[in-house]
């Protein structure tokens, strides 16, 4: 289970560039829950993911994952519990290394590595078995450098690598945003399949309302560093893209409702 409790983060405090990126966010993700975070640019959705991943230390608040208080853990230590897929399909893999070599690295993430051969016949067969269901024909190309693959193929492999050891938490940071529409749809379907099959707890940042409606169990909407909507259960079951657009519109209208508007409309509300 992931739990964030009143997490705050301000970048460049005390300078003209000060940004209150997280203004006390709290959320609890039960085991097996797949949640999407949506929001406008600068709303704090990626910052939330990075706070959980340990890309920076938060100013205050606590982050608990799988019973551990990871608030003060460095990023590399959290990596033993967390799998990540980034927006850039070239970010989660080593381009010069083969598919098999990249995967074997992920198979040993968080484990002690010795000087023995990383790849043997059994492991190669296991890799082939695991990548065959991607239906991309990659099982015959495991000795090809991963840099020769398309963005969609590479992102699918990154997703597989991130979930190979069944992490306690999977973080997806707009992981389909840089792909062409067809590849994005393929990776989205694959994401749902893997998360459901492995019963993973996952947090996905997305700009796609369609993905937010179709993929996760829960939708968290952020605005200006705060959670403004949390849609789950029966509300999630009936939510449509138009409802999310309405929710964005409500947030926008709320921003436009300032003191001068209040002064105008209050006397007219009988």
């Amino acid at each position: 289970m992931l739990e964030l409790n009143n997490v705050k983060k301000t970048f460049f405090p005390g300078t003209p560039n000060e940004v209150q990126a997280l203004r006390g966010i709290s959320m609890k993700l039960e085991d097996g829950c797949f949640a999407a975070i949506i929001g406008t640019n600068g709303s704090g959705k990626s910052t939330s993911l990075n706070a959980v991943a340990g890309s920076f230390m938060v100013d205050s608040g606590q982050i608990h994952l799988d019973g551990h208080d990871i608030t003060k853990w460095p990023e590399y230590r959290r990596a033993s519990l967390i799998g990540r897929v980034f927006q850039n399909p070239f970010a989660g893999t080593a381009a010069e290394m083969t598919i098999a070599e990249n995967i074997v690295l992920s198979m040993r993430r968080g484990k002690t590595r010795g000087l023995g051969l990383a790849l043997n016949r059994r492991i190669r067969e296991e890799i082939k078995e695991r990548i065959r269901p991607l239906n991309m024909g990659l099982e015959t190309r495991i000795d090809n450098p991963i840099g020769t693959l398309s963005g969609g193929q590479r992102q699918a492999l990154t997703l597989l690598m991130a979930t190979w050891l069944r992490p306690k938490l999977l973080l997806l940071d707009e992981h389909t945003a840089a792909l062409d529409p067809k590849s994005a749809a393929q990776v989205a379907v694959l994401t749902k399949e893997i998360i459901e099959r492995e019963k993973l707890t996952a947090l996905m940042v997305t700009h796609s309302m369609q993905q937010a409606v179709q993929l996760p169990h829960r939708i968290i909407m952020m605005h200006k560093g705060q959670i403004v909507e949390d849609i789950y259960g029966e509300r999630k079951a009936r939510v449509k893209v138009a409802d999310l657009m309405n929710a964005f519109d409500r947030v926008r209208r709320r921003d436009l409702f300032d003191a001068s508007v209040a002064e105008q409309v209050l006397p007219q509300f009988a």
């Binding site: 926008r252 209208r253 709320r254 921003d255 436009l256 409702f257 003191a259 508007v261 209040a262 209050l266």
Partner: peptide, 11 residues
């Protein structure tokens, strides 16, 4: 700003 919790303005 509490009014905004109770009333929405079209904007």
């Amino acid at each position: 700003p509490e009014l905004r919790e109770w009333m929405s303005f079209c904007g």
